[in-house]
């Protein structure tokens, strides 16, 4: 009897000890979590500050922009957007957005098609000279863009393509972006070829295999390619600067610079307002495609 009671109290002691231990652990865990999130929030805020400031400043008037470092406007105004949209040229900013679209749309579509086809060829077929061709493709990745600018300019000038959008998107239609081809090849290598073989046994020709089997499996990677190409083209400044000379053909990236050039004492709030607008499409597209995009860049190595 007394032995049982002794055992019971020993068990109670052990329970209480365990509970104390757990409570201590829980307190420590919470403390370290708070600390961790505090640091992360601070660093995150620091990183985002320029962007927040940009958005805030686009609603300020010109005088306030340089007088206060805070990002919340004291006296919010839309005048930057209204005047900025009108621009100092005969065209509104809508025109420049449309121009950008005229470059981006064919470039993205043709990049996806051509890079998928070329990557499929490199990843799945044996042909003479494959190693050399693939090596030279990779070599162009290492080549700085600037090196080819002048020969390219001369070439397109000979072809009479200056002051048109052709030099900006035609190279992409022939899988000119080695990086995308490389990315898709890596992605394809991680997909077992069995499905494609099954399709061939089912009677599919190579292009049918590409279209009906490979492309759907490549979707996450293709979305990444489209997204990268969209953002890079949206942000491309040098290309349009070199090849386009008439204002009516300018894309957004050039138009932004244009508003700095033409105004004598330029209105920063207009420029900032238009910068915010210029950022918007990339951000919207990015967040819409984020899910696939992350899948696309991370799945390259492990999907199988």
């Amino acid at each position: 009897m007394s032995q049982t009671m002794l055992d019971d109290s020993a068990a109670l002691d052990a329970d209480a000890e365990a509970a104390r231990h757990l409570a201590l652990q829980e307190r420590r865990r919470r403390l370290s979590m708070i600390l961790r999130y505090a640091v992360l929030t601070a660093v995150g805020f620091l990183m985002l500050y320029p962007l927040l400031w940009l958005i805030g400043a686009s609603f300020k008037n010109n005088a306030e922009i340089f007088s206060s470092p805070g990002f919340i406007p004291k006296d919010p105004t839309l005048s930057g957007y209204v005047k900025g949209w009108e621009t100092s040229t005969p065209y509104s900013f809508g025109r420049f957005f449309w121009n950008t679209f005229l470059i981006i749309a064919p470039k993205v579509v043709f990049t996806v098609i051509s890079c998928a086809a070329v990557a499929y060829g490199f990843a799945r077929f044996q042909f003479p000279g494959k190693r050399i061709l693939f090596a030279s493709l990779i070599a162009t990745l290492l080549l700085p863009n600037v090196v080819t600018r002048i020969p390219q300019y001369l070439l397109f000038s000979e072809m009479g393509w200056l002051d048109s959008y052709l030099p900006l998107w035609v190279p992409s239609a022939f899988a000119g972006d080695a990086f995308f081809v490389f990315m898709l090849v890596q992605f394809l290598r991680s997909i077992p070829p069995d499905m494609e073989e099954a399709a061939r046994v089912d009677g599919a020709k190579s292009w049918q295999v590409l279209l009906f089997i490979v492309a759907p499996m490549l979707t996450p990677a293709l979305i990444s390619v489209a997204l990268f190409q969209f953002m890079w083209t949206m942000n491309d400044f040098l290309g349009p600067l070199i090849y386009l000379s008439s204002v009516e053909k300018f894309p957004v990236s050039l138009a932004l610079k244009l508003s700095i050039d033409t105004s004598e004492a330029f209105d920063w709030n207009r420029i900032l307002a238009m910068s915010v607008l210029a950022l918007a499409p990339s951000l919207v597209v990015f967040f819409m495609a984020q899910k696939y995009f992350i899948e696309g860049i991370s799945a390259g190595g492990v999907k199988g």
Partner: peptide
């Protein structure tokens, strides 16, 4: 392969991942 009058069953099934079973069968 499609013209040989053969059909093949693979070790890891090799079903087309993006197609429903019905489409897999009828492809």
């Amino acid at each position: 392969p499609g013209d040989r009058g053969i059909a093949m069953v693979f070790q890891n099934y090799a079903l087309y991942p993006h197609m429903k079973v019905r489409k897999n069968l009828s492809f």
